[in-house]
Nucleic acid binder design. Sequence first.
RNA 1: GGCUGGGUAGCAAAGCGGUUAUGCAGGGGCCUGCAAAGCCUUUUAGACCGGUUCGACUCCGGUCCCAGCCUCCA
Length: 460
Amino acid sequence: MLKIYNTLNNQKEEFQPIDANQVGIYVCGMTVYDLCHMGHARVMVMFDVITRHLRRNFPNVKYVRNITDIDDKIITRAIENNEDIYSLTNRFIDAMHEDEQSLGVLSPDIEPRATDSIDKMIDMIESLSKKGLAYQGTNGDVFYSVRKFKEYGKLSGKNLDDLVAGARVDVENHKKDPLDFVLWKKAKSGEPSWPSPWGNGRPGWHIECSAMSNHFISNHFDIHGGGMDLTFPHHENEIAQSEGANNCTFVNTWMHVGFVNIDDEKMSKSLNNFFTIRDVLKKYDGEALRYFLISSHYRSPLNYSETNIESAQSALIRLYNAIKGLNHNSVDSSLLEVDYEARFNAALNDDFNTPMALSVLFEIAKQINIERAANPNKANTLSSQLVQLGNNLGILNYNADEYLKRGSELSESEISKKINQREAARNSKDFTMSDQIRDELLELGIILEDSINGTTWRRK
RNA sequence: GGCUGGGUAGCAAAGCGGUUAUGCAGGGGCCUGCAAAGCCUUUUAGACCGGUUCGACUCCGGUCCCAGCCUCCA
């Protein structure tokens, strides 16, 4: 039984799909005007883990993650670069897809671009207009009348008077109420625009997610997710738009992923304390990064530091060391005295507890190391189980030997040559020479391991 | 100010009202020519104050501290 923490009521509840044959999940994706940073990586990886788990438990899962390819920042950046918005956004969409591949993230089923769904957004705004929930302001923009939607604030636990008292809301005199938010922005000259009943313009940010989730999944669907910073106002506004237009519940379960922090502060563009995925991949491999991202629970803050990533890398190497040299083609459950798979699944069923799931992997690894010499069949089956469960989390995707040798600066033949020289020295008991060769290789990041089957090497 | 979370051993990070989390790092041992890997073993916990309980890190109340949202943000 899967339990998910729902932001709507701030508690874990049993996940009951609207239709068990077709689970729908929508995640707010990126605004593509720049490279993705580690915070984006966390959202991509976590929802990848989540959808993989859903797919193992339900026959059909429709995972939609949008691409925001029109907004103020995109327009500003395109002007700065003196380029067309589509050439800008296409470039960063490609970059995003490359980053996802590096992190082992599977593609969503649908990745709708906002600019392909402008008509759906216009339809929705018209419907809101007809219901008296939207109006055109004195500047030509179309706004949502927040006070007319009685349940506004139910997701983030805010009440309207507190918001006004907070006084950080924009005081714009072309709105009827400072809390109202933009549905459609009138185009200024030279800006990209689309025709609409309110004149040429472009959509406000929030409307795209309402329109596209309704269109590509349904007016009422199972799970909607994103980063925690989207809870308010973005998701609150989506609820107002969708429920206002459709007169039905929009989403049953709201999921929000915690931030990646630096020195206990949120990583963000405005604080300029962010690391792009590419920056980090220059130094660490994608799977280690993925391990780092799933090593804490998705709702907790995750502190970015090189030490923490290096520790993740070491942990991952321990798993690869365990499966190295074993066959992992099939699980013979009669050889297993512990039902690791059940425990692994129970961990993920408890609100996607990835740290708990990982701890099961380490128990298997330890068991493999204990059994591998005396009981190869058992070691092989444990290894198969470990790889299978690791794959469920999107790790252990590589052949162990290849992974452990990844990115070596020396070629295999150069290393073999050194190993052979050292072997000769060892055979003649010239341990000074043999240790010297080992030290030279270690300087180059190559660790030698002697065993009864000869000497093997791996990357530090 | 309003609304969310959270404070766990050297670091990271979970579960759990009483029994080893787990990983990294450190100590001791085994193995090894010596190492590495691995195995065995071991040291460091639960912000603070009350309460409930036979028993609380775990439940309840309070205090202090931290982060996030309330403005674009994953």
